[in-house]
Amino acid sequence: MKFKAFLTDNGVSLLDRRFLPALEKMGKICHLFLTRDHAFFLHNLLSTDGIQSIAQFRKQALFDDYRISSQNEDRIAFAFDISLLLRAVRSSVSICSEFGAAPAPANRLQIKLVKKLPPNCTQPMPFLTFETKGYKSAVIQDVPISKPLSRAQVLELQATLDAAQDLPRTLVQVPDLNRLQNFVDRMKHVGDLLNVTISKYGNLHLQISTTLITLGAEFRKLLVVGDKAQAPSEDRDLSAQTRSERAIAMGDAQSVQVSVRHFSKSLQCHLAKPDCAFYGIAPQGACLTVIFQFFVPGTRLTDKSISLHCRLPVLDPGSS
């Protein structure tokens, strides 16, 4: 089992300033799953509860001179603590930038999988090692990682990953991620369970109901991707709740209940600076999916080398 690659400047900035801070909010521990062509950062794929997040990078998006080999079709997966990885990347960046004036190719950041005998230990332990060559010095940082996943676990991971690629039939675009996050963060104080209704008319309706309070927000006329329908004209004069109920009754909307905390976490992904975000409900109301879209810088074209989406567990099948 071998893995060795150079992190590109673009890769460093993607991880350091965007993805790792966002993924850190999803949970402390994350799986890194490396294949011949892709690197995946995965949260909660092997557990049934908690929000699943899947960040996928084509190897060229992060690495240069990417070499991987294993007896399991060149696939390697292990768990690690995101905050440690983020610290290692940040400090490597600072070493590189200290000598930033020097010609660039010398300051390459190599990462590789190693086994080392840590002090006071009898057993060698696996590490992800960052090697930075500065102007006069070289710095090596070892990020402790879990034992690589067994063949069976890797297969399970791959299977869950394949299953998680199902797209909801209707996706609505979130109008303003920051504003929505602000709202949901404040909503957290009022209750724990959030009803999310998404309609083919482009409505996103969020509502918390407890015995004392009902608090909701409705966003209408959002961009719809996938199955869409024309909103009935008499809809305009109704309350948000009635509108949602009617749309569900007509089969034009789905509703699920998720944890407000999960929903708010999913919005934290805006730290990865996506260009837009879409919410949708998976078939049979299996989960609430949020898909983040990234554009090729300077264009409105989807950057297919990066993808990020989250799946929020549904607490109650709702009225799907």
């Binding site: 015995t211 309070i213 608090l215 909701g216 927000a217 409705e218 966003f219 209408r220 309350s239 948000a240």
Partner: peptide
Amino acid sequence: LDDCIYAEIR
């Protein structure tokens, strides 16, 4: 008109 936040408190 398109976005609305509402609440009902008992």
